[in-house]
């Protein structure tokens, strides 16, 4: 009754779970906070929290780089300055959730103020990053004339998250997989590096994950 057919550019749930687990292992070794969220009666999904301030350099001041590591500059101990700096406050939460309908992972994300927990709009998030995350565009449409990014109910939590519409994922992944050497077992990584470009300069995964 419940069956799956494999088409080019799609991923099975089993493969998703398997690749997600190995991605979390790799992230742990790299000291990056990808986790697997497992709830009763629900398939597991991947989650990562990004502190927007430490992930991107603020537009106003260049941070010193030492030993190839970007130092996060300590804010002066001044409540007013802290409050006026939007970068000090935003947490970006990214989930990769498997969709049985589209047979591929779907990206969900939300942003909120780390201090108050209140949701931050897409514009608020864009304003916090230099050059404004131009790909986060609420007016963009997919080839099937669907909003490329729209708020949706999170399939597990039931609360509003932004999501990238999955109608083009299989097509794009088919092309990407055919152009990639040693793509076996790396669907999820390749997909995350593809879909993650919408957050540039914030990176969801980087080249070390492929080693």
């Amino acid at each position: 009754m419940v069956e799956q057919t494999a088409a080019v550019g799609t991923l099975s749930q089993q493969q998703f779970t398997c690749e997600a687990a190995s991605l979390v292992e790799k992230a742990k070794a790299l000291g990056e906070p990808w986790t697997l969220v497992e709830a009763a009666d629900q398939p597991a999904y991947l989650k990562r929290l990004v502190s927007v301030r430490s992930a991107v350099r603020p537009a106003t001041d260049e941070l010193p780089v030492s030993d190839g590591v970007v130092d996060v500059e300590e804010e002066p101990n001044d409540g007013a300055t802290l409050h006026s700096d939007p970068l000090s406050e935003i947490t970006l939460e990214v989930h990769a959730i498997y969709s049985k309908t589209w047979q591929c992972p779907v990206l969900y994300f939300s942003a909120w103020s780390a201090n108050t927990g209140t949701p931050v709009s897409l514009d608020g998030l864009k304003n916090a990053v230099r050059d404004g995350l131009p790909d986060l565009d609420l007016t963009a449409r997919t080839a099937y004339h669907m909003p490329f990014i729209a708020q949706q109910d999170h399939p597990v939590l039931g609360t509003p998250f932004y999501s990238i519409h999955p109608c083009e994922t299989a097509m794009l992944m088919a092309e990407m997989l055919s152009n990639t050497d040693a793509a076996d077992g790396r669907y999820l990584l390749l997909w995350l590096s593809l879909v993650g470009t919408i957050f540039h300069p914030i990176a969801l995964v980087h080249s070390s994950y492929f080693n």
């Binding site: 009754m1 419940v2 069956e3 799956q4 629900q42 049985k100 109910d153 939590l157 039931g158």
Partner: peptide, 27 residues
């Protein structure tokens, strides 16, 4: 959470059309 499973409406071998009850007890 809302349940959305890919359910086929018919048994491919016997041509039996699944009933709502059969599908719900399955998923």
């Amino acid at each position: 959470a809302v349940v959305q499973e890919p359910v086929s409406p018919v048994d491919g071998e016997s041509d039996h059309e699944y009933t709502l009850g059969e599908i719900l007890s399955n998923i």
